[in-house]
Amino acid sequence: MADAFGDQLPSEVRSRRLALGLTQQDLADMAGVSERFVRFVEQGKPSVQLDSLLAVLDTLGLELRITTRTGKGARALAGHTTGQEPRR
Rank of each mutant, 00 (worst) to 15 (best):
66 I>W: 12
11 S>F: 12
36 R>D: 06
64 L>V: 12
58 D>F: 09
26 D>H: 12
35 E>S: 07
56 V>Q: 01
88 R>I: 03
4 A>V: 14
9 L>C: 08
50 L>R: 14
73 G>A: 13
85 E>M: 05
23 T>D: 07
29 D>H: 11
80 H>N: 10
56 V>T: 02
36 R>M: 07
26 D>R: 04
85 E>S: 10
9 L>N: 03
76 A>K: 15
83 G>D: 06
84 Q>G: 04
64 L>F: 11
31 A>R: 02
12 E>W: 08
20 L>Y: 06
34 S>Q: 09
88 R>W: 04
58 D>S: 12
12 E>P: 02
61 G>D: 04
40 F>V: 02
6 G>M: 13
24 Q>Y: 09
24 Q>V: 09
38 V>A: 03
62 L>F: 06
53 L>A: 08
48 V>K: 12
28 A>S: 00
12 E>G: 02
47 S>C: 13
6 G>F: 09
68 T>N: 00
42 E>Q: 08
31 A>E: 06
21 G>T: 07
65 R>H: 10
19 A>S: 14
32 G>A: 08
42 E>L: 08
64 L>N: 06
22 L>P: 08
55 A>T: 04
69 R>G: 09
64 L>G: 03
87 R>M: 02
72 K>S: 12
42 E>V: 06
66 I>K: 11
48 V>A: 14
20 L>F: 07
16 R>P: 03
22 L>A: 01
38 V>L: 00
55 A>I: 03
71 G>P: 01
87 R>C: 01
35 E>V: 02
4 A>E: 14
54 L>D: 03
58 D>N: 12
44 G>T: 11
88 R>G: 05
60 L>S: 00
78 A>K: 14
3 D>V: 15
60 L>G: 01
20 L>V: 01
54 L>G: 01
87 R>G: 04
15 S>D: 11
74 A>M: 06
20 L>A: 06
35 E>F: 03
52 S>A: 13
58 D>H: 08
80 H>G: 14
75 R>H: 05
84 Q>P: 01
48 V>Y: 13
13 V>S: 09
31 A>N: 03
74 A>R: 13
28 A>C: 05
49 Q>R: 15
11 S>A: 14
67 T>S: 13
